[in-house]
Nucleic acid binder design. Structure first.
Lengths: 387, 387
DNA sequence: TTTGTTAGTTAGGCTGCCTAACACAAAAAG
DNA sequence: CTTTTTGTGTTAGGCAGCCTAACTAACAAA
């Protein structure tokens, strides 16, 4: 795994070179003096670092930038030697794939709509992933450099190799798909991925802690506390669909009932059951419900408000446990601004102050998140785990 | 605050010296070769580090240890120049105080039983804290070195200076007590302190993540995820007494009701209401209830089991949110091994696998935790914040 | 007393950063 | 056109903080 013939034999970079590389990966192309000042490195140190990074083509010069005065500054970006990553969102309705450089320049992307909505991970999805990855690899060009890492976002709980892998369905992705050998592989839950994406590129940018709550077919949460994604011992952190319900004196709570009560299915069933004949045909799905609610339909608005209150109550529960200060709503229902005020009102009334925001990334959140995690894995490979 | 006449003027230690100092603070007295090998420092580097640390008396030699063969090794410990810390647990029934060196050698300790159980922070407690601290400072001896930090564990929510201080009652401690000027001051919630103590010295030693759940007069949780204490934006992480309740279809949840339902008061009220005449007088308090349950009283056992189930349900909620993998039970009721099996059964049935353990530290947990936090603050002062 | 083993010091080297001073490029001033 | 000004990049040399190698010191067993 380590002595691949295309790999440079462990460059063992100096600290400043690593810092410069990280800066280019995270901040995108930049000039030498700019990087130097932002990392407070002296010009000689910058020279040495750049020279070190240019040898294995980890970085490359892409031109010169003229300021108002004085000599123009050389601009650099991550080079082909740094390689690329493949990120796959193996979702229940789509398979989304992105191939990108470590500084997130998109090399290819693919979206496959699955023939039937697969409620959970199964072999059908695995085959789709295999096909998409094969297609992406066939399109690979030498200028992309070596494949450094591959990330897979799964709609299942994900546990590390030390955990109880058997109890999750995470292994099913590999029933028809074999990941490229000798490449770092990252598995992560799709909601956690979306949280990571919102953290770095979306509605939670700059927040130290927050919760991403996905409200759609199922309900789930991704938790970031102190800039760290919280996974949990069983990969179950944020599995708020698994909350037991009801929780009241005398009632006997059932595990996992929250999902059944708060998921789209049950919600729409309640809407249909409670839809007055006078109001016309009940909406067929949540999209339609949201559409007519958005145009002022009172009956629809009432149901949306009621659901917002339920979601708000669940969020209040999470706030009382971890007090994240910020919640980003995503998913089919959560992305709608119609839900937001009701959720915010209920959550704040029932618990401690929380700001509630809508997602900024929508359906792309998951791929972008797993891409980020794959890039982090690639960096660990290139720079050698520490920090 | 920085140029106190008793303070050494910023020694600016080298990295290895800091590592050695930290090792002595955390691991207690040790020999030079032992520290060197455990930090993988060469003998010359060790020499330099020790010399550096002996100058300001941060460490001192306390003897020589003879191995089976060869020259004896010099043994060192944290010296008087490192100073000491004061840790105070301003609890609702007791004020507990510890004065200790940075390597946790106890210099004095005091325990004051408050005349009446103060349900919350008030001026009475503040006066008691002032008196105890004054007594401790009067007993101070020159060999203790300078006071480096002081920690205060409070039975309130605690927020940092950036937070909304007014909404907590944390400022009330200072109504009759003025902390020593120019000394780092650490405030922390008492349950969080207990969690920190269990993390380092108690039932959660070695666990990366866990929740400490205090079950007593009130119910609260301290959360440690990835070895980091989770405080929350409003200092409200772990405020599970504030969970809204009931949570069921049609019911309207009330904020903070969980505390009323799960606290000792309400619990004992239910016990009394449901106590059959044939079973004799109902127990007066939880201690008595636990005592007769422990000796096999079926009626008492039934109530304990019922309460264990309720606690287990709350823990299951927490597990579905953060999945800590381990829960340590503490507090008046939680410390009892009678509760444990019922809690473990319910929590595991309703959520994901969690190990449940009893506290190992009991009533001392909180002081030990705030002591630890004060020591960490003192280290930050001595070594200059980083890492 | 000798020998073997471990503890600690001294001498000297290497790495990774720094500052100072100089060479280079490009616009502005003469 | 030079010349000046200003910012970019390189070369030379220094210093902190670690290392290895080799020596001295202390102690037990032969």
């Amino acid at each position: 795994m380590d002595q691949n013939e295309t790999d440079a034999p462990k460059p063992a970079l100096t600290g400043s070179a690593r810092a410069v590389f990280r800066q280019l990966v995270e901040g995108g192309p930049s000039t030498r003096p700019h990087i130097g000042s932002s990392l407070s490195l002296s010009r000689p140190t910058m020279s040495a670092a750049i020279a070190e990074l240019e040898r294995p083509q980890y970085v490359e010069m892409i031109g010169a930038v003229r300021g108002a005065l004085g000599r123009s500054a050389a601009q650099y970006r991550v080079g082909s030697g740094a390689g690329h990553v493949i990120a796959v969102d193996a979702g229940s309705t789509h398979v989304r794939l992105r191939v990108s450089t470590l500084d997130r320049r998109l090399l290819t992307s693919r979206v496959l709509r699955l023939p039937v909505s697969q409620i959970s991970m199964n072999e059908e999805v695995s085959r789709a992933v295999a096909a998409e990855v094969a297609a992406a690899q066939a399109a690979m060009r030498p200028s992309w450099g070596p494949l450094r890492a591959m990330g897979l976002a799964l709609p299942t709980r994900v546990v590390g190799p030390t955990g109880d892998v058997a109890s999750t369905r995470q292994e099913i992705v590999f029933s028809a798909f074999t990941p490229p050998p000798g490449v770092a592989l990252v598995l992560e839950n799709n909601v956690n991925c979306a949280a990571v994406a919102e953290q770095h590129y979306g509605a939670a940018r700059g927040a130290q802690s927050f919760a991403y709550v996905q409200v759609g077919l199922k309900i789930g949460m991704g938790l970031v506390l102190g800039e760290q994604l919280v996974r949990g011992r069983n990969g179950a952190a944020g599995e708020i669909g698994h909350l037991s319900f009801p929780f009241a004196p005398g009632a006997s709570p059932q595990p996992g009932e929250a999902e059944h009560y708060l998921g789209t299915e049950a919600f729409m069933a309640r809407v249909r059951a409670d839809w007055p004949e006078a109001a016309g045909d009940a909406p067929a799905d949540t999209a339609e419900l949201l559409a007519i609610a958005g145009s002022g339909h009172v009956e629809a608005l009432r149901h949306v408000a009621r659901h917002a209150l339920d979601i708000g109550a669940v969020i209040a529960t999470c706030v009382s446990v971890v007090d994240p200060g910020l919640v980003v709503l995503g998913g089919g229902l959560g992305a709608s601004p119609l839900l937001l005020p009701g959720v915010a009102e209920a959550a704040n009334r029932l618990s401690y102050p929380v700001e509630i925001r809508n997602t900024l990334l929508g359906a792309d959140a998951t791929v972008l998140g797993i891409e980020r995690l794959a890039i982090e894995a690639a960096m660990a490979v290139l720079l050698g785990d520490e920090a």
